[in-house]
Design a protein around this nucleic acid. Sequence first.
DNA 1: TAATACTACCGCCACA
DNA 2: ATTGTGGCGGTAGTAT
Length: 326
Amino acid sequence: MKTIAVVLYHGMRIFDYSVIAEVWGIDRTETGLPSFELRRCSAGLRTVAGDADTLIRASHGLRGLAGADLIVVPGGTRATAPTEPADQRLSAALSSAHDAGIPIAAMCSGAFVLARAGLLFRRRATTHWLLVAELKRRFPDVRLDRQSLFVEDSGIWTSAGTAAGIDLCLHLVREAHGAEAAATIARRMVSTPHRAGGQRQYIDTPVPGPADGGPLIEAIEWAREHLDEPLTVRGLAARARMSDRTFARQFVRLTGTTPLQWLQHQRIQLAQELLEGTSLSVESIARRSGFGSASALRRHFGRALGTTPTQHRRAFAIRAGEALPR
DNA sequence: TAATACTACCGCCACA
DNA sequence: ATTGTGGCGGTAGTAT
């Protein structure tokens, strides 16, 4: 494994990209590690916008995927979004790479990118635990494995969350170059020692909750699918069969935010997807994303993203393969 | 923009 | 003894 191709796409998580860059993008030959070429491949875009206001410069187009020894797909805030035009070329490139026998690994929500390419069809796979329900709904033929940090099937790897993505990358290094190489990188990353994929998530994964989905996770998954309805924290607590107080506490422990903040974030994200992927009016997007009115949407949008819905749409509803503005 | 009425959050505490 | 629960009330935040 010497040439690694990372797939860049709009909305990708910069954290995941950083992990990949940390593992394969740094020359560590002086510590006895093999040298890697890290190709940053995107669908015709020279520069791709990640989350947190970042831009990553591509080094290759999708042709860079061919001939790689490994392809890695980071997760992304909008990995779960409805198909974008640029996707089809990405899907095609990924499946021909797979046909050519190149292993492909997806971190967290990157699994959705693979699923859209048809690569998870009837295969064992996993994804971020919060998105498992959605993956199952959208791609019922995927054979979900809720218990593993990461899963491999026919050369396709998927991982269960942010931390699990790191484990997956290290595992791939370990497979190709041995435990010592993986340990060296892990040490340099100040990461935890290697965790095997088959481990149940709740044994030692710090963030995610029980893999079999407690009532809290069910409530969260339910909320994600009913964002268009008026939701209250109290209502969600009832759904989780807990008192308000306990629900709020567990929620913070599990997600790192409070229920309302999380809810608003989910709604903003949904509105973003709809603005980018559809031509619905702002008013109806507001309703579908659970902001009762366009003005409420605008207010939240402004506060969360510093723009208006219409501006956002103009900036991001990009045509296939066009460079991003600025 | 202001007033209001409502909701969420969180520390505290008693209890299991 | 430690850990989780859930009720209460003040304050901060949200909705219209």
